[in-house]
Design a protein around this nucleic acid. Structure first.
Length: 334
DNA sequence: AAAACATGCAAAG
DNA sequence: TTTGCCTGTTTTC
């Protein structure tokens, strides 16, 4: 269940490896056989993310829309040309992974090789755990056997991407894409930033729902999920229950700018880094362990890193919401 | 070994 | 409001 940053990374990986290439598509699982047949032989023209959704355009006006949902994932294998800098020798390719479960050592690479794209031979072993040890064993098997229920496999001569467990995988025409885009709020990495800010502020200000709910509403702002929601509210020291129309405009503008920053960091690092200023061992700890990465998320009952008050937990929109009842308060009247 | 749980969403009822 | 997706990790028996 990647939040927005992961999907942007996947779209970039897809762009690097598939755009401009004639694709062969299949559905090893069978549930997308008809769609795969329509895609086969077409050239991918572009690929991009808006919020948590990925869109890829193929020649002939055919679009692929994918939403990974809570446990969907893409696995890339083969000749991976990446600008993401996340490739160890046998690292995992851009994958819709759980941010907190990335155990491989891609973090340092990620920091050092941004802007230094390189070719890497990367073939996934049968399972993630055997990547390091088992990669060479299966290195000559091409294409690799699908692992698990692969809804869609996209292939070029040298590269493949396997999609598993998505909530949405469908083909659309351009009008269909527009209809989806129309109901999505602004994404800091799509379109004009100032326009996005204005849309976000206006959307929140006209609603009475709690700000904690509105941040997760993809029509208000696209790409924020349960972790970024909790962390952004903490970073703003904002009570999650304040109605949207009672949040001062200045606070909303700050929230938007914070999302701009967090999303950019997330895309670059591949993790939802929400505690600023970490260095050295603390930074490495945060990179490698979700438990050390956040202010409040997943920390119910533990002391607030700032004030020591126990982090509270409640349900909002059927999702767990963590917050510090001491640090996070209603904004003073503007 | 089995169960619970997770960074969402859409479709069914 | 409930269920499906059907993965991968963590927790419980």
């Amino acid at each position: 269940m990647p939040e927005g940053h992961s999907v942007h990374r996947i779209a970039r990986q897809m762009t690097a490896n598939f755009v401009g290439q004639v694709c062969n598509a299949s559905s090893p699982q069978g549930r997308f056989a008809q769609g795969a047949e329509q895609l086969t032989g077409r050239t991918m023209l572009r690929c991009f993310a808006v919020g948590k959704q990925m869109f890829a355009e193929f020649d002939g006006g055919l679009w692929l829309r994918v939403h990974l949902g809570i446990y969907g994932a893409w696995d890339f294998a083969g000749e991976i040309y990446t600008t993401l800098g996340q490739t160890g020798e046998y690292g995992r390719a851009a994958r819709g992974v759980w941010d907190g479960t990335a155990r491989d050592a891609d973090a340092e690479d990620s920091m050092s090789s941004i802007g230094a794209p390189r070719r890497a031979r990367m073939r996934m072993a049968e399972s993630e755990k055997t990547d390091a040890a088992g990669a060479s064993v299966v290195a000559d098997a091409w294409p690799p056997e699908p692992v698990g229920a692969v809804r869609l496999r996209l292939m070029t001569e040298t590269t493949l991407a396997d999609l598993r467990g998505p909530t949405v995988c469908e083909l659309l025409d351009e009008a269909g894409v527009d209809a989806v885009l129309d109901r999505l709020g602004p994404d800091p990495l799509v379109g004009d930033l100032a326009a996005g800010e204005a849309k976000f502020v206006a959307a929140v200000r006209r609603r009475r729902a709690p700000i904690g709910q509105l941040l997760m509403d993809q029509s208000v702002v696209a790409g924020i999920g349960n972790i970024y929601r909790a962390e952004m509210l903490y970073r703003a020291r904002l009570d999650p229950f304040v109605p949207g129309n009672e949040v001062p405009e200045s606070v909303l503008r700050s929230l938007w700018h914070d999302w701009v920053d967090l999303l950019n960091i997330g895309v670059e690092v591949g993790r939802m880094m929400t505690i600023p200023g970490l260095t050295g061992a603390d930074y490495q700890l945060a990179l490698n362990d979700v438990r050390h990465r956040h202010w409040v998320y997943g920390r119910a009952g533990e002391p607030c890193r700032t004030c020591g008050t126990n982090i509270a937990l409640t349900e909002m929109q059927n999702r767990k919401l963590y917050w510090c009842p001491s640090c996070q308060v209603a904004p003073t009247a503007a």
